[in-house]
Computed example of a mutant assay.
Amino acid sequence: MYMLLLILLGVIVLFTTFMTKPKKRIHHRLVSLGLLLVVVGGSGVYESYQGNTSTGDNPRQSVKTTTDSSTDLSKLNYQSDQEIEVNNNKPTFTSSDLNINNGAWQSFTNLDNLNRAVRADALLNKGLMPTAKREPLYVNPTGWHNKKLKSGWLYNRSHLIGYQLSGQNNNPKNLMTGTRSLNSPEMLKHENDIAYYLKQDPNNYIRYRVQPIYRGNELVARGVQMMAESMDSQGSADGQVSFNVYIFNIESGVTINYSDGTSVVNNN
């Protein structure tokens, strides 16, 4: 406000000087004073504007953390974002992966030599979605050492492909030990987007892949990679659901021993 007043005062001085035409010496002094007031006021306004844009008065959209598709995800350590984009959030399915000629299907890789869930693939369609109520889970995935926290249980039996999409429930090939935050809200928000899309049209498809990422022989995954690509009835990608993300299997305030699933609650 004060800077604007200086500019206004400078303009008034200049205007008055040129209108009244005082003696030459006074004229020069008044012109110099008027110009000085305008320059000082203008500089103050500019600095104020710069300060506002840098402190958030003119916010920019935040950039989501991303990693290259060739990155070994098992070597990544959690920093600040539980979910990061892979390959700029673009799925890496091939044209044959996106073939819909055989209709909807789902496939679960056999457990590995440590009995860990490995990968789930599917061409999802509304026809695969269950109508029956889900039964209680009883299968314990590898590294299942659950613990009650103040905010709830540390772990969930996390489906690779959510029950609401596949009808698969107590399938050991489709279950991993996941933290509560990994399961919900992180994985669930993507599953809900997929479910919504499939319900809009029974001829819609989504190519889907979910893969736990382990480090060496650890029994609990460090995270999970999820990819999805939506397609219309002609098998053409429509971009309505399209993502490639990696979600860290962490829980705030807890240190997890990924080798066996035991954990320590941090007191600080």
Score class of each variant (00 low, 15 high):
Y2P: 12
L4H: 11
I7D: 03
L8C: 11
I12L: 14
F15D: 09
M19T: 13
K21Q: 14
P22A: 04
P22Q: 01
V31F: 07
L37C: 12
G41Y: 02
S43I: 15
S43F: 15
Y46Q: 09
G51W: 04
S54K: 15
G56D: 06
N58D: 12
P59S: 07
Q61I: 14
T66N: 11
T66A: 10
D68K: 11
S74P: 06
S74T: 07
Q79S: 13
E85V: 11
E85Y: 14
V86I: 14
V86R: 05
K90E: 14
T92Y: 07
T94R: 04
S95P: 08
S95F: 07
S95E: 14
S96H: 08
N102C: 03
A104L: 02
T109C: 08
D112H: 02
A122V: 07
L123D: 06
K126A: 15
K126N: 13
K126I: 10
G127S: 15
T131M: 10
E135G: 11
W144I: 00
H145Q: 07
K147Y: 12
S151I: 06
G152Q: 00
Y155G: 02
R157W: 00
R157Q: 06
L165V: 09
L165D: 08
S166Y: 04
G167S: 00
N169R: 03
N170T: 08
N171F: 07
K173E: 11
K173V: 01
K173W: 01
N174I: 04
M176R: 03
M176Q: 07
S184P: 05
E186P: 00
L188R: 12
L188Y: 11
D193A: 15
Y197T: 02
Y197W: 01
D201P: 04
Y208I: 07
V210N: 08
P212C: 03
E218G: 12
V220F: 05
A221C: 00
G223Q: 00
M227D: 10
A228S: 05
A228D: 04
M231R: 08
D232N: 15
Q234G: 10
Q240L: 11
S242E: 13
F243K: 09
N244R: 01
I247Q: 06
I250D: 05
T255N: 15
T255S: 14
I256L: 10
Y258P: 02
Y258F: 09
S259N: 10
T262D: 05
V264I: 13
N268V: 15
